[in-house]
Amino acid sequence: MNTPVTAAQSAKFIVIEGLEGAGKSSAIALVRDFIEKHTGKAPICTREPGGTPLAEQMRDLVKIANESDPLCDEAECLLFYAARAQLVANVIKPALANGEWVLGDRHNLSSLAYQGGGRKLMPLVSAISDATLKGFKPDLTLYLDIDPKLGLERAARRGELDRIEQQEIEFFKRTRATFLSFADADESIKIVDASQSMAEVHKDIIALLQEQSW
């Protein structure tokens, strides 16, 4: 006899990842619409860092440059995980337990790539990740892959770049390489070629979503 699937068991956590200029915003809107059509209800949408009142304050600390008191790499990493811990504990896990799907704009893979790879802090990132998340991870991650130079050109056209977006190109090359390394090692992370036209990117995303056994 098959055991009935509860709403909490069927709820999924999907995350969109990518470098600056990869097109995360349009991808998130697309996936949000897909989930709503699939489940009949809009997902809980989150962003990282941020997503709770306290986590949003931490977002300001890591996004805004302070020339008189520059944020050191280790402090940046700790702030990201403090914000994430708040979001997971107070928003994501409660939503999933209530049977609600969650759609995230970034999650732990970003810290592994940006702070672990880009900042070269992988031992620290791995230790904090294990301590705070305890194995919790998305059911599906869509990584929008793009060459850093092209991505930053796109990002610059949106307006003024934030503190992290102003890093040197080698930082983003290391970050991208780390994204790809984790994607190659984890079947739940799917790579989408974000250098294509928006129509082609969206076509690939829909195909990946339709492949899932939900």
Rank of each mutant, 00 (worst) to 15 (best):
F182S: 04
S195R: 08
E20S: 11
K149F: 04
Q212T: 11
I169P: 06
P94T: 14
Y114G: 08
L161H: 00
T6W: 06
I44C: 09
L121V: 03
G40L: 13
E74N: 07
V192H: 03
V5Q: 14
V192M: 02
A185Q: 15
L144T: 06
P138D: 05
D204Q: 14
S195L: 07
D33Y: 04
A97H: 09
L30M: 07
S126V: 02
L209E: 03
L109Y: 03
G40R: 12
Y143A: 13
T39K: 15
G104Y: 07
M1C: 09
V88I: 14
A156K: 15
S181E: 10
E168H: 15
D204L: 03
L78A: 12
D186Y: 04
I169L: 15
L150A: 12
A75Y: 05
S188D: 09
E168C: 02
G21V: 00
P53G: 12
C45G: 01
V201H: 11
F34D: 08
F80W: 11
L30W: 01
D193Y: 05
A199D: 14
A177G: 09
Y81Q: 15
N98W: 00
G18R: 01
K63S: 11
K134F: 02
G51H: 10
L142R: 00
A199K: 11
L152N: 01
G23Q: 08
Y114Q: 13
E200Q: 15
E74R: 14
R59K: 11
G51M: 07
L96V: 06
P94G: 14
F13H: 11
C77S: 15
E36Y: 04
K12F: 06
D186A: 08
D147H: 11
Q212Y: 02
H38Q: 15
Y81V: 11
E56C: 13
D33Q: 14
M1Y: 06
E48F: 05
Q210M: 05
L61I: 14
L54H: 08
R154W: 00
A95C: 10
L121A: 10
L87C: 10
T52Y: 01
E74Y: 04
G118H: 02
D145C: 01
K63C: 10
A185W: 01
Q9K: 02
E165S: 00
M122Y: 12
Q57N: 08
P4M: 08
K134N: 14
L19T: 03
D73M: 04
D130C: 08
D184W: 08
S110V: 07
E56G: 06
A82W: 06
